[in-house]
C-alpha cells in the first residue's frame, strides 16, 4: 500500500498548482482584459479569486462530507436484512430530494438557517445525496454471491463480513457515486451566493446582474477547473484503493 500512496503525489502537486494559479490575481486580470477589452474591470475585485475558490471548496467539502457520513450508512443499513424494508422509502426520498431545483431549496432554507453558508451546505447536501445513496445501494446489492457465501462459510461474523469483504468489494462503485456527487455539488454550489453562501458563484451572480462577462468567465472557468481536478482525484484514489482490479 505504501508504494500505492506514493502514486498520489501527482494529485497533490496539481492541487497546489491550481491554487497557485488562483493566487495569480494580476495574471487573471491581464487575461480577462485581453478577452473582454470593452469591460472597465473584467476581474471581480471585491474579493480575491483565491479567497473565492477556497470558500467554494469549503462549501463543497462540507456538503460532500455530510453526504458521505449520512448517505453511506443509510445505504448500508438498507442493504442489511434488518433494513431491507426501508430501502424503497430511501430510494424514493433521495430521488425526490434531487427533483427540487437547488435554487428553490436554497430559498426555502433561508427562513430556517438565515443568511450564510449553513443553508447552502444543507441544500447542497440534499441535492448531492442521490448519487451516493444510489451508488451505495447498487454496490452492496451487486456483490458476487459466491464470495459472500465463502465469507460466511469461512466464519466471518456479519459485521466482519461487512467491513472486511463487502466494503472493500463495494468500494469501486461507492467511489464512483462519491465522485459524481462531489462534482455535482461543486457545480451546483455556484448558486450559494443567492443566500449569502459565498464561493465562485459570487462573481458569476454579480456579472449576470451588471452584464459583466469577465466576472462570469472568471467564476465559470474556475469552477470548471476545480471540477475537473476533483473528478480526476477521485479516479486516482479509486485506482490506489483497489489495486486488485485490472
Amino acid at each position: 500500500m505504501q508504494s500505492a500512496w506514493g502514486k498520489l503525489w501527482l494529485v497533490g502537486l496539481l492541487w497546489a498548482g491550481l491554487f497557485g494559479l488562483f493566487a495569480q490575481q494580476a495574471l487573471w486580470g491581464h487575461i480577462l482584459s485581453a478577452l473582454f477589452p470593452s469591460a472597465q474591470t473584467p476581474l471581480f475585485d471585491r474579493e480575491t479569486l483565491l479567497s473565492l475558490s477556497l470558500q467554494h471548496l469549503g462549501i463543497t467539502v462540507a456538503a460532500g462530507l455530510l453526504v458521505i457520513l449520512i448517505g453511506l450508512p443509510l445505504a448500508i443499513f438498507a442493504t442489511r436484512p434488518l433494513g431491507a424494508a426501508f430501502r424503497p422509502l430511501l430510494e424514493s426520498s433521495v430521488a425526490i430530494g434531487q427533483t427540487f431545483p437547488p435554487v428553490a431549496v436554497l430559498v426555502l432554507a433561508l427562513p430556517i438557517f438565515g443568511f450564510g453558508s449553513t443553508g447552502a451546505v444543507l441544500a447542497l447536501f440534499l441535492y448531492g445525496l442521490l448519487p451516493v445513496v444510489r451508488g451505495g445501494l447498487e454496490a452492496f446489492s451487486a456483490l458476487p454471491a459466491d464470495v459472500l457465501e465463502a465469507a460466511s462459510g469461512m466464519g466471518y461474523s456479519p459485521t466482519q463480513r461487512l467491513w472486511r469483504v463487502e466494503f472493500p468489494l463495494a468500494l469501486p462503485v461507492l467511489l464512483a457515486g462519491i465522485r459524481a456527487s462531489l462534482v455535482l455539488i461543486l457545480a451546483t454550489a455556484t448558486v450559494a451566493p443567492l443566500v449569502g453562501g459565498g464561493g465562485l458563484g459570487t462573481p458569476i451572480v454579480a456579472g449576470l446582474a451588471v452584464s459583466n462577462l469577465g466576472f462570469v468567465t472568471e467564476g465559470a472557468v474556475s469552477v470548471a477547473l476545480l471540477a475537473l481536478l476533483t473528478d480526476w482525484t477521485l479516479t486516482r484514489l479509486e485506482a490506489v484503493l483497489t489495486p486488485w482490479r485490472s
Binding site: D146, L148, A150, G153, M154, L169, W244, R245
Partner: peptide
C-alpha cells in the same frame, strides 16, 4: 455458529476467492 464454521474447511465449486485479497 461462527466458531463452528471456523472449525470446518469449506470449498465450493465457484471457489469464492476474495478478489480484493492476494
Amino acid at each position: 455458529q461462527v466458531g463452528l464454521r471456523r472449525g470446518i474447511g469449506y470449498v465450493i465449486q465457484s471457489i469464492g476467492l476474495f478478489p480484493h485479497m492476494t
